[in-house]
Design a protein around this nucleic acid. Structure first.
Length: 565
RNA sequence: GGGCCGGUAGCCUAGUUGGAUAGGGCGUCGGACUUCUAAUCCGAAGGUCGGGGGUUCAAAUCCCCCUCGGUCCGCCA
């Protein structure tokens, strides 16, 4: 519906512009004026026209507006300084618009584009910590956003089973007599992390052990020792089981888990090395490396160690080459510390004429004391973060509601706790560095809880009315008042916000929309009587449509919309 | 040393393809619960957009210098 009104406005401008000696070069885009008093849509075309016509933008705006035939949905079009502003006629428009909103509101038309999106991909050497969660939340929110914007998205978790970390753990089990199950922790991934930490301490004290770890890496890569292979796989699967549980709790599920070892066993890694060799970009100097000096990257990319084994980058190259065959776009969510690595990798892919990934980078989350490290055992796990969030939410509910059953309290505190975490991460633009503080992350004033609260209020109201919502009809004579108009105005923006955020691949724009929508709804709720008002049915429809939009908007962020709070 | 990212009210932050009074939130201060849940609403105070130069009719936004913080420059991943 929004796109249709925008189109009408654009057409009316285009038609009017024909009366001037001016060619429109680019596709006309409208924007939202900074506040509703200035209208609902605005065009900036007069700046460009002014240059060609050698008149002031303000004058052009006045002349242009005179030529514009006002389309029916608008009440008026007027020049405001250099802008041409359109005012929606809410008396006519509101009913038609609200009737277009159904459960699918926000879902845009399918576009023919398959995206392979890799996110999280944390090493399976311990539990997820709050550094990883930013990757997971950005990746998952982006997936939801892109799907809603009509793209076909497949998510992948790249499993680093061949790295030094897993070899360390296997070494700990085989040679240091450590056992995963004996570690002091509840969850299996935490047990793996504990064991990894212990092996690190041992190896740090006794550097000769490093060669034993190297031997494990080499043997696993060779792949002839069945028992060893099984042990590697068992360690990784153990850890992954715990990681998947954590992700599931914050509503994240990957379509595929792709093991890097796969690309060794199927020969893709060798093929990649050979292909680059044939292309003439490989040099040898004990190690085999990719020389990128011609591409203005001074740092060479090592593809084989002096003992012949491959490196992370080698396997990643094979993985990305394959990913390029699986979709139209390869999208990676990566910490900004990977910038150089991915640049090198992209050059490698370019040399092979393969698809180069598009990358969403995010800056680190650090603790006030400094950065986190699984190796040193210094981190806050996502499980601990969730537990704390849910606990705080529970205290909050218990202080407000005494009429709920224990089961209800548990369910709601889980929804609110998870929401607070996801919202906190999603609302910041990814290039912003975060110093983690509990109180910032877990705020229930405003923030996510107030949005969920708006939804709960809407639910309660609909239930309390005891009417058959699907049968309600909007009063033909309804002329929305200011609070109603403000709410409708925000509702119309939803599809535009989705399209815009999806094009920019920036999810934090959605959080602001959620906040705006909740604010508009809460204000309406506070100021206007619904049940018992002469406009009861009409307002109930408005409440229901707001509820749907709130729910769908929260869903883009992986946040659930409770019916009670 | 070089590359990349960030610095916006007491705190967190949006806006960075140049254009409307720099938009939110927290906190502070003052109001609103006999009325559909006050996790709410209304109002107010609070800004040298890190600093300095420059380009422009117009700069938080573009260019140059400086500064503070993060990060990368592994035969780690």
């Amino acid at each position: 519906m929004y796109f249709e009104i925008e189109q009408q406005a654009v057409n009316s401008i285009k038609k009017a512009v024909k009366e001037f000696d001016y060619e429109i070069e680019e596709e006309l885009k409208l924007e939202f004026p900074p506040n509703p008093e200035l209208g609902d849509l605005a065009s900036t075309i007069c700046f460009a026209m002014a240059k060609k016509l050698r008149k002031s933008p303000n004058l052009v705006a006045e002349e242009l507006v005179e030529k514009i035939e006002v389309p029916e949905v608008f009440k008026e079009v007027k020049p405001v300084g250099p802008y041409v502003n359109f005012f929606i006629n809410y008396d006519n428009f509101s009913k038609t618009f609200l009737n277009t909103i159904d459960e699918k509101y926000g879902q845009l038309k399918k576009v023919n584009e398959k995206i392979v999106l890799e996110h999280t991909s944390a090493n399976p050497n311990g539990p997820l910590h709050i550094g990883h969660i930013r990757n997971a939340i950005i990746g998952d929110s982006l997936t939801r956003l892109l799907k809603t914007a009509g793209r076909d998205v497949e998510t992948q978790y790249y499993v680093n089973d061949m790295g030094r970390q897993i070899a360390m753990i296997v070494f700990g089990i085989e040679d240091l007599n450590l056992n995963i199950q004996n570690q002091a922790a509840d969850k299996i991934d935490h047990k793996v992390g504990q064991l990894y930490f212990k092996v690190n301490e041992e190896v740090n004290e006794n550097q000769e052990l490093v060669s034993n770890v190297d031997a494990k890496i080499k043997a696993y890569e060779a792949g002839n020792d069945e028992t060893l292979n099984e042990l590697f796989e068992k360690v990784v699967n153990n850890c992954l089981t715990g990681v998947k549980e954590t992700l599931a709790r914050i509503h994240i599920k990957h379509d595929k888990f792709v093991w890097e070892g796969h690309f060794i066993r199927n020969g893709d890694v060798d093929k990649v090395v050979n292909e680059l060799q044939d292309a003439g970009f490989l040099r040898e100097n004990e190690v085999l490396y990719l020389d990128l000096i011609d591409f203005e990257i001074e740092k060479e990319l090592v593809l084989r160690r002096s003992d012949g084994t491959s490196l992370y980058a080698t396997r990643d190259l094979a993985y990305h080459k394959w990913k390029g065959t699986q979709g139209d776009v390869v999208l990676d969510v990566l910490g900004s510390d990977h910038k150089l690595a991915i640049e090198q990798l992209s050059k490698g892919l370019e040399i092979m004429h393969d698809k180069v990934p598009e990358v969403i980078f995010y800056e680190f989350i650090t603790l006030p004391e400094g950065s986190m490290s699984t190796r040193k055992g210094v981190f806050i796990s996502v499980d601990d973060l969730i537990d704390e969030a849910v606990k705080r939410a529970k205290d909050e509910i218990n202080s407000r509601r005494l009429d709920l059953s224990d089961d209800e309290v548990d369910k709601i505190s889980e929804e609110i706790g998870i929401g607070a975490i996801r919202f906190y991460i999603a609302k910041l633009s990814p290039e912003k560095h975060i110093t983690f503080k509990w109180d910032d992350a877990l705020s229930f004033e405003r923030g996510c809880a107030s949005i969920q609260y708006a939804h709960a209020r809407a639910s309660k109201l609909l239930k309390k009315s005891e009417k058959n919502i699907s049968k309600l009809v909007i009063d033909d004579a309804w002329k929305p008042n200011e609070n109603e108009k403000d709410l409708i105005r925000v509702l119309t923006k939803f599809t535009q916000v989705i399209e815009d955020s999806a094009n920019k691949k920036r999810v934090h724009l959605i959080t602001q929309y959620c906040q705006d929508l909740a604010n508009a709804f809460n204000k309406f709720y506070k100021s206007e009587q619904v049940i018992g008002s002469p406009l009861e049915d009409t307002r109930l429809v408005l409440v229901e449509k707001s509820k749907i939009t709130l729910k769908n908007a929260l869903n883009l962020l992986g946040v659930s919309a409770p019916d009670k709070m």
